[in-house]
Design a protein around this nucleic acid. Structure first.
Length: 165
DNA sequence: AACAGGATGCAA
DNA sequence: TGCATCCTGTTT
């Protein structure tokens, strides 16, 4: 198992979103392959929580890369993101799809519900956490870029990445 | 295609 | 206070 390093996340958000496809996410012994991601940046991205600056909710997006950003939405669901870019430069990748041995979780709310991820798991360091981490996958990945889902602003950006094959 | 569910953050 | 929201299952 080759764990993803701090340097992996310490790059442009779009690049990390693309390269996270095919990587393995492990949480408390449950492990799956990332099949779908979305990139969210900062001041240049009106769809990003970091768009208005480091508010309490979005503050972690401005911090060190490799940490989890978990937010609660629509009164029911949690969404898991991973912070990207150097400290001080906001960015995060939303995990939207995960393939487990026996099922495909499509949608960020379903992933958190299935794995039991809540705000309790916000701000954890995936680079050093004992049972919450990301590691290398098996093979190179072909992906497709599309508009992001569920947003009304910046729909022109093709920052949703879906694994093919 | 429409909407209920019903917490949270932020603008006012 | 009020309202829009990085969602999803269920019902027209």
């Amino acid at each position: 198992m080759i764990r993803l390093s701090r340097d992996f996340f310490n790059r442009s958000t779009v690049q990390v979103a693309q390269e996270l496809l095919g990587k393995r996410l492990t949480f408390k012994g449950i492990s799956g392959v990332v099949t779908e991601t979305e990139a969210y940046t900062g001041l240049d991205d009106p769809a990003s929580h970091a768009h208005r600056g480091p508010t309490p909710r979005a503050e972690i997006m401005f911090g060190e890369p490799g940490y989890t950003y978990v937010y609660f939405i629509y009164g029911m669901y949690h969404c898991l993101n991973i912070v990207t870019e150097p400290e001080g430069s906001p960015g995060a990748v939303l995990i939207r799809g995960l393939r487990l041995p026996n099922q495909h979780l499509n949608g960020p709310g379903k992933i958190c519900k299935a794995l039991g991820i809540t705000k309790e798991h916000h701000g954890l360091d995936l680079v050093s956490h004992p049972d919450f981490y990301m590691s290398e996958g098996d093979s190179p990945v072909v992906y497709q870029a599309t508009p992001r889902i569920g947003i009304k602003r910046a729909t022109d950006k093709l920052w949703r990445f879906v694994m093919r094959g």
